[in-house]
Simulated scan of single mutants.
Amino acid sequence: MSGHGAPSIAFNSEEKAHTGSLRLAIVAASWHTEIMAGLVAGALRGASDAGIANPTLVRVPGSFELPVAVARLAAKFDAVVALGVVIRGGTPHFEYVCQAATMGLSEVSVRTGVPVGFGVLTCDTEEQGLARAGLPGSVEDKGHEAVTAALATAVTLAQLGV
């Protein structure tokens, strides 16, 4: 399972005081509603765990649309999280969407300097997505992990003064 060896990130009280003041946006695709519901719930739980009461939640049609929405939001937020799921089918569509989402989100983060949490599941099967969605019975909670990673990066950059 891909979660093996993942770091455990918990904000201490000093960091939580800082994260609670950060502006966080969560951009979520709409395809695969059950998996997305788990990812969004995990992301909102991650925000709450970090002391952020009301993150902005924006929905877009699919994972391909995530980079443009994240790019627009990066100008107004301290961290942005992208959530989506792409499940392999019988055509090259999977590779094109995965590559576009990954490259687009990476480019936004590097260009803007705003941490972008990558919560896009790229799975061979729906079962793999369900296992990572943070639902009851899931072995991973990628929505929570994406928020925590973006906020931890924002805190680190702030501590460095950059």
Rank of each mutant, 00 (worst) to 15 (best):
G5P: 01
G5F: 06
A6V: 07
P7Y: 06
F11S: 01
N12C: 09
K16Y: 02
A17F: 00
L24Y: 13
A25M: 12
S30V: 02
T33V: 06
E34S: 01
I35L: 00
A37G: 13
G38F: 03
L39S: 03
L39W: 00
A41E: 15
R45E: 15
A50K: 03
A50W: 12
T56W: 05
L57H: 06
L57C: 13
V60C: 08
P61W: 02
G62A: 03
F64G: 02
F64M: 07
F64Q: 02
F64I: 06
L66D: 07
P67Y: 06
V70M: 10
V70R: 03
R72M: 14
L73D: 11
A74N: 10
K76I: 07
K76P: 00
D78V: 12
V81P: 09
L83M: 09
L83I: 11
G84P: 02
V85P: 00
I87C: 08
R88N: 05
G90T: 11
F94N: 04
C98G: 06
Q99Y: 12
A101E: 02
A101V: 07
T102A: 13
S106K: 03
V108L: 05
V110Y: 04
G117W: 00
G119C: 01
T125Y: 09
E127M: 10
E127G: 10
G129A: 02
G134T: 00
P136T: 04
G137V: 08
G137L: 10
V139D: 11
E140N: 07
E140K: 01
D141G: 10
T148Q: 12
A150D: 15
T153D: 15
T153V: 15
A154H: 14
L157F: 15
L160D: 10
